[in-house]
Design a binder for these strands. Structure first.
Length: 358
DNA sequence: AAGTGAAGCAACCGCCGAACC
DNA sequence: GGGTTCGGCGGTTGCTTCACT
């Protein structure tokens, strides 16, 4: 095992930035002779560089098919989604982005996307809501309501009543914004739905984050068939929140056609093996088409909009477009499930949501 | 205009696994 | 079978540019 370095300090080979002359030597040599042994190339091309340096310069910069310029929103979205599945496998991510190099994607991730996710309150490693923030503890103190002291018709997001806030103006401002969102949701609510959610539950649409954060991981129907639909994109999201250990970015429970009842959830907890056959391992080869279908689909693709950019823009689009009823339906069923589990979970979800808003 | 720190990014480093001898 | 070579990968460095004071 092991190898001797192809270039070291005593070899006298040049290091550091490449000059235009060196680029020209390397490019013209490869154009004339093609790619061969990198070790032999520098001498043959008249370069005082090691083969490794030449290979890096060619693959990351000089290669003619390299795409230049800023990453598009579509590329950003693709990188985030791929990263949620593949992790720091930059070369594998790059394989899905024609013209982009692993080095470029890695740099872009470290300088832009990673920070972007952090600002959204998302852990860039796990792609789940951050739990490493003091704000989580702070927020849990902010939301002092409990299932015991919350009546069934109380709105836990009523700042004037049940929500006891610390005198933090910034947090208040954020919560006020959230209140506004809920008002929008309420006033635009379609009353023609048939679900059994109590009327007052509409006002506690706090677990909006159920649909926002986990969808960072949600690739829709990741088992790879062509029936990627809005409902399938949502299906596993509640599990992410109710019990994150159930769902990973590589698993998809295809048996759930609708939001589970509490009984279903408990059964799921008690006997996961009964559902194990329904799990399918992610087929990475199918990722591009899946992501494309989720990105381009006009049926439910809006669920992914918040990932691309401003949260409020995404939310506004969700509420304005033709699929908003689906979205509201999801919110309400999510609330119902949390309601069944006890309102303490709502506070947890609320905290996560607030983090995402920071 | 000059100084300073942050951000961006090209390039390097060290390790690994496959292929080769 | 074991050592060597090579290409490739992910992590890291350090130079350059940018933004701010």
């Amino acid at each position: 095992m092991g190898r001797s370095p192809c270039c070291d300090d005593v070899s006298g080979l040049k290091k550091g930035p490449w000059t235009p002359e060196e680029d020209e030597l390397l490019t013209s040599y490869i154009e004339k002779h093609g790619l061969g042994s990198w070790r032999a190339l520098p001498k043959a091309a008249g370069l005082n560089r090691c083969g490794k340096s030449c290979r890096l310069r060619w693959t990351n910069y000089l290669r003619p098919d390299i795409k230049r310029g800023r990453f598009t929103e579509e590329e950003e979205d693709m990188i985030i989604k791929l990263h949620s599945v593949l992790g720091n496998k930059w070369s594998r991510i790059a394989a899905h982005l024609p013209g982009r190099t692993d080095n470029e994607i890695k740099n872009y991730w470290n300088t832009h996307l990673r920070k972007k996710l952090l600002q959204m309150g998302i852990d860039p490693v796990t792609h789940k809501p951050r739990t490493d923030l003091n704000i989580l503890a702070n927020l849990s103190q902010l939301f002092t309501t409990t299932p015991q002291n919350l009546g069934p018709i109380m709105n836990p997001w009523d700042i004037n009543n049940s929500l006891r806030l610390q005198p933090n103006v910034a947090e208040l401002a954020k919560l006020q914004v959230l209140q506004n969102i809920f008002q929008i949701l309420n006033t635009s609510n379609n009353n023609n739905n048939n679900n059994s959610l109590p009327n007052n539950m509409v006002q506690t649409t706090m677990p909006l984050n159920l649909g926002m954060i986990p969808n960072m991981n949600a690739l829709g129907n990741i088992n790879g068939n062509n029936s990627c639909s809005t409902s399938q994109g949502y299906n596993h999201v509640p599990y992410d929140v109710l019990n994150p250990s159930h769902v990973t970015s590589e698993k998809y429970d295809s048996t759930l056609e609708s939001f589970p009842s509490l009984d279903t959830y408990n059964n799921y907890n008690n006997d996961k093996s009964s559902l194990s056959s329904s799990y399918e391992t992610l087929d990475e080869n199918k990722l591009p088409s899946l992501i494309e279908s989720n990105t381009n689909s006009t049926n439910g693709s809006s669920a992914y909009t918040p990932v691309n950019g401003d949260f409020f823009e995404g939310l506004e689009k969700l509420l304005d477009d033709g699929n908003s009823d689906l979205w509201k339906e999801f919110i309400k069923t999510s609330v119902r499930a949390l309601w069944n589990l006890g309102l303490s979970n709502v506070s947890t979800a609320a905290a996560r949501f607030a983090i995402a808003m920071c």
